[in-house]
Amino acid sequence: MISKILFIGPMGAGKTTAITAVSDSEPITTEADNLDRAQSDKATTTVALDYGEIYLDEDSSVLLYGMPGQDRFDFMWPILAEGALGAVLLLDHSHPDAVAQLDHFLEAFAALVSCGALVVGVGRVQNSQDIGVYQAHLKAKGLALPVYATDVRHKQNVLLLIETLIANAELNEILER
């Protein structure tokens, strides 16, 4: 039995770090020198996708996909979203267009959004009021989605994001019966 969790978000938001925090195996990453300094000033970036795995037993595992944040890879998103348990959307609050990026990913992953299977983790926040910006934005769109302040270098933060997706998936199972 295979399931998957997606880690999405703009370049430099911490997708590779988040997967590394919870993967049982050394994540397979496809980092290359970042030549797209307009989107992020980090030195390297994922050019194909990151791949990690949580082993449950011989036959079962949950695959962790970190999807490239650059727009030119967005053709891959619906393919990978198919059948996913949910998506962790990572944003960088220090980025001037973070709210616009939120909109971009909400639209790209509308199918997951519609069944509540998307949790937003916002990095580099100074205080809880920073999160209020995203909460208010979602509320104005009529979307009740979880938004947390997140530091993906801390495993507990990543686990909270995943546990939220599990809680939502459990609800979906019950509602679909």
Binding site: A144, A149, E163, T164, L175
Partner: peptide
């Protein structure tokens, strides 16, 4: 119903709260 999720991780959090937020937020 709730229009916004609690700020879990920053506010007191427990597994049952995640379930309730998923239910009443949906």
């Amino acid at each position: 119903g709730i229009a916004t999720w609690p700020l879990f991780g920053t506010w007191e959090t427990a597994p049952w709260m995640l379930r309730l937020a998923a239910l009443y937020g949906r």
